[in-house]
Design a protein around this nucleic acid. Structure first.
Lengths: 343, 343
DNA sequence: GGCTAGAATGACAGCGCTGTCATTAGATGA
DNA sequence: TCATCTAATGACAGCGCTGTCATTCTAGCC
C-alpha cells in the first residue's frame, strides 16, 4: 500500500515547517506565493493527501455531512442522495450516509452516532423523529436539514413539500377529469403515506365522493406486483371504482398492468394516478399521470443551505417548500375520453 | 449538542485508568468481571461513545469498508449496497461509499482517497480499473473485493458473474424459443454493456442469425423512454426483427410499451428479454423475461469474504461466480405461441 | 514462608494534524 | 536612522485514543 506521506515530510521537502504546509493547504492566501509554490510542488511529488482522522481529531470537527435515509433501494431517496452528492462535488465535504429502514428507533440511534462525530451538517428524511431524537437534534451544534417533507416545526431547516396537499391536488385532478368513484392504493403505511392518504380523503370528502371501503392498503413495502394485487382486491370488492390514486409509482404501474390483464380500459374505465413521477411514468402506454416531487433538487438545496450556513452566508428561508406538481397524462384523461393532455 | 464524553471521564467515574476502560471496551475478556461491570455502568450513565477519529489515528486503521459504485440511482448497484449493508449490520464496521459516475479516472482518484484512510476493506464494482488504479489496489494492504463481474485476473477476491455468458444464455433462450431475427438494444455502452453485447453477438453468430445492423445502441444512460426510442428506431430499419435482447430491464420495459403503442403483439410478433430481473419484470403484462443476477447476495458475500479475512477465517475461493439465471416468462414464449412458461 | 508465574492494571508516548500564541523579517514614516 | 507596524512563519501543546512496556497483585508451589 502506498506508504503514508505526512505533513512533516512535505514540510521537510519544501524547506518549511509543518504548520506552514498546513496553512498553505487550508488558507493559501496566508502564505507567500513563492513558499506556496514550493509546497505545492512537494505535495505533488510526494502525493500527499491529508489524513482525515488526524484532522478531525485536531479540529474537533469532521468535514462530513451525515445523511439519514430510510432505504437505498427506493428510487425516491437515491434521487435525493444524488442531489446531495452533486451539491457536494468539489467541496471539502464527504457524505456519510446511514439507513434507518423506516424505523424511528434505528434513526434515533444513528442520529446519536452521527452527532458524536461532530459532522459539519446533518440531513435527515422527513419529520417523524422520536422525541429523544428530536431532543438530540435540538441540541446539535451543526446545521440540520429535514428533507422530503415540510411541517410546522423544523428542527433547524427544511426542504420538502406537503404530502397531504400533493395527494389532495392529485385527487382533485382525478375529480376534475370527471372520475367520481375514486379509490386509494397504498403500501408500507408509514406516516408519510398516511399523510398522503389523509390528503386524498380530505379532498374526496370535500366533494362527497369518499368511500372508506374503496381504500386498499398493505403494510408490505410497495412494488409493482403489489400494485397489481391491490387493484385486483379493490376491484373485487368495488368494481364500480373508476379511478385509483396510488401512493407511489410502482403501485400505479402494477395497477396499470393488472387493468390490462383484466381487460379494463385505462383511462376510459379506470383512471390511474401515481406519485413521485419516476421516469417510466411518462414512457408507459398509456402514459401514467403522477405527482412530480423535486427530489434531486431537495438534496441539492439541503446541501446548499448547509454550506451557506457553514460559510456564514445567508442560507435563505428556514423552510423551503418545493411544491409538488401534477403531471397529467393519458392515464387520467377521464372516463368519457376528454381532450388529450400533453405528456 | 451532547457534550463529548471522553474515555478519561468514564475512567474517573469507574475509578480506573483510561487504558483499562479502553481495554474493557475492546477486549472485555482481559478485564476482571467486576471492574468491567463498573466500567460498563459508567459508560451507560455517561452515554459514552468512542471517537472514531481518535481511534483511527491511534490505531492507524479505520473500521470502515469503502465501497465504490458507479451510480446510486441505478437499482442494480443499490441492491448490491443493500447486501453490503446487511452483511455489516451488527459489526463494528461502517460503510463509506463513493460514486464513480462510470468514470475510471474518478474511480482511480477515489481509490487513492480511500486507501489513505487505511480502510478495513474495499469493495469496487467491476473489473475495468485503470492501470494506475490497478497498481494502487495491488499494493493495498486490506482485502479488496471486486463485485458484479468475474474475470481472469482478480486484484484479490471477486464475487460476480460473466456478463458475456449471461447475455449469451439469454440469446440462446430467444433462439430456443424459435425467434430467428434477434436484435440488440443497448444504452450507456460501458465495458460491462459491451461484454453483454459480445455475448449476444457470439451466440447469434454461432447460430448464423447475427445481423450487425439489427443492433441499436446509444451512449445515453438507459431509461424506459430510451428503450422505447431504441425499439422504434430498430424496427424502422428492420421491421422483420422478431426479438430483442435488451441490455437491461428499463430498456425492456420501454420496448414493451413501444410495441404496445405500435400494435405489435408480444411475444407473438416480438419477443423481449431484459437483463437484471428487477421486480417489475414479473409483474408486467405480459410478464417480461429477464436474466436474474444475484445482486444482493454479491454484496453480502463480498462483505463476508472481507470479514472472514479480517478475522483470520478462511474466506473461501478467491473467485465466486454467482451465475446468472434466465427467467423465462411470457414475453419470450416464442413467435408461434409455444407452450406457456411458468413465471 | 518465600518465591515465581500469570493475571490485571497502569504509565508513557505518540498517531498526524491544527489552534494559539510567539517570533522574525520587511515595510513605513517621522 | 530608529521606532512601529504588518505580513509571514514557526514553536508548542494537545485533540482522544491505543501500542508497548512496566508494575502490581494474586494464587500456586516447594
Amino acid at each position: 500500500m502506498a506508504k503514508r506521506v505526512t505533513l512533516a515530510e512535505v514540510a521537510a521537502r519544501a524547506g518549511v515547517s509543518p504548520i506552514t504546509v498546513s496553512r498553505a493547504l487550508r488558507r493559501p492566501d496566508t502564505v507567500q506565493a513563492e513558499t506556496r509554490a514550493r509546497i505545492d510542488a512537494a505535495v505533488a511529488e510526494l502525493g500527499y493527501v491529508p489524513d482525515p482522522a488526524a484532522r478531525a481529531l485536531a479540529t474537533g470537527r469532521a468535514d462530513v455531512i451525515g445523511v439519514l435515509i430510510p432505504s437505498v433501494t427506493n428510487a425516491v431517496f437515491t434521487d435525493v442522495l444524488s442531489g446531495i452528492y452533486d451539491g457536494l462535488a468539489d467541496s471539502r465535504f464527504d457524505v456519510q450516509y446511514a439507513i434507518t429502514r423506516y424505523d424511528p428507533g434505528t434513526e434515533e440511534k444513528l442520529i446519536g452516532v452521527f452527532l458524536r462525530q461532530r459532522p459539519a451538517g446533518l440531513i435527515i428524511s422527513g419529520i417523524d423523529q422520536t422525541d429523544a431524537a428530536r431532543r438530540l437534534l435540538d441540541r446539535a451544534t451543526c446545521p440540520v436539514v429535514q428533507v422530503m417533507e415540510t411541517g410546522p416545526d423544523p428542527v433547524d431547516m427544511m426542504v420538502g413539500f406537503s404530502h397531504h396537499d400533493a395527494a389532495a391536488a392529485a385527487t382533485r385532478h382525478l375529480l376534475d377529469r370527471g372520475y367520481r368513484r375514486p379509490g386509494f392504493l397504498g403500501a408500507r403505511m408509514d406516516p408519510r403515506t398516511r399523510r398522503r392518504f389523509a390528503g386524498f380523503r380530505a379532498e374526496a370528502e370535500a366533494h362527497g365522493v369518499f368511500d372508506p371501503d374503496r381504500v386498499e392498503t398493505t403494510e408490505v413495502p410497495s412494488s409493482v406486483g403489489g400494485g397489481a394485487k391491490l387493484l385486483r382486491a379493490l376491484l373485487a370488492r368495488h368494481p364500480e371504482t373508476d379511478a385509483v390514486f396510488c401512493n407511489n409509482d410502482d403501485l400505479a404501474l402494477g395497477a396499470l398492468f393488472e387493468a390490462m390483464r383484466m381487460g379494463i380500459p385505462v383511462p376510459g374505465q379506470l383512471g390511474i394516478c401515481g406519485f413521485n413521477d419516476l421516469e417510466m411514468m411518462r414512457a408507459a402506454e398509456p402514459s401514467l399521470s403522477s405527482v412530480r416531487t423535486h427530489r434531486f433538487e431537495m438534496g441539492a438545496r439541503a446541501v446548499e443551505m448547509i454550506r451557506a450556513r457553514l460559510d456564514g452566508r445567508d442560507p435563505g428561508p428556514a423552510i423551503i417548500d418545493l411544491e409538488a406538481e401534477i403531471l397529467a397524462r393519458r392515464s387520467t384523461e377521464g372516463p368519457t375520453g376528454n381532450r388529450p393532455v400533453e405528456t
